[in-house]
Design a protein around this nucleic acid. Sequence first.
DNA 1: TAATTTAATTGATAAAGTCAACTATATGAG
DNA 2: CTCATATAGTTGACTTTATCAATTAAATTA
Lengths: 148, 148
Amino acid sequence: MAIPESELQALFMHTITGLKISMKNIMKDKALSLSPLYFMLLKTIHDTENCTANYLADATERDKGQITRLVKEMMQQGLVQKQPNPHDKRSQFLQLTESGLGCFEQLAIADQAVLKEMRANVSDDELTTFLEIGNKMLQNLHKINGKP
Amino acid sequence: MAIPESELQALFMHTITGLKISMKNIMKDKALSLSPLYFMLLKTIHDTENCTANYLADATERDKGQITRLVKEMMQQGLVQKQPNPHDKRSQFLQLTESGLGCFEQLAIADQAVLKEMRANVSDDELTTFLEIGNKMLQNLHKINGKP
DNA sequence: TAATTTAATTGATAAAGTCAACTATATGAG
DNA sequence: CTCATATAGTTGACTTTATCAATTAAATTA
């Protein structure tokens, strides 16, 4: 008989693995040489007005150095470009290029489709409840980890 | 305004990251040169009677080759040992050594403490509901990914 | 203006994941 | 039984992701 908290951990691990696998399959289908990590970056840049590298590191919980390199890669692939930040010469705003936006949108549509199918037999109410409880636990976790 | 399915994905990502961070902190505190990955392996071996490498790969959703190497590392650290599988000469049962068990138990206690704190303000009923909905979605995800 | 933060980059390295080829044993059809 | 096929585990070669410290240049603040 499993302790319910352990089941919680297992649920998160397996779900994340499953989401990564489905995202990889999507990318293979579309012949994009990307990964779930890059999708997360593209999504964050897409969703964030005036997204800086620093913000990106924070939002995705990745090392700043790693972000520098990942952004460089996306620029080489022509997906992302930098705009000067008029208020701070040290930093730049990241934005999707036209091609980056196209790429993101393709992936986002497929991603949404997976998520939709994943919650197919889950009602709106249930989903809301799930998110509420999940976010409550996430808050607690952040507190535990000493996040401001 | 976020599409609720996206929030779902974000919830999973941030929670997993948070769990990894807290597990890393635990390991640093205890001066163990391990990682969340190793904890997952130790736990699976601990919880599984007659755990084979193959089962371990399946349960943790890792590559078999990777498992071979991770197990080798744990054996070198004296945490795990192999027993011959009397029914199949190709395979062996993995089990924790005394030291491996001690190590696992330390981590498991700390891990349980984190999970408990994480759900501190979540009632048993809420947790049950959360797990039910989560498992339903995980099932769907497995179907999407073509898992038997 | 000098001292201290902060944004981003770089270097070096380690950890984790991927994929295909291979060995040894098992299994199942004929 | 035996031969083809499947399975458990290992190995090699490689890529991707993560970590962590040091550095540069601009911003902040004392």
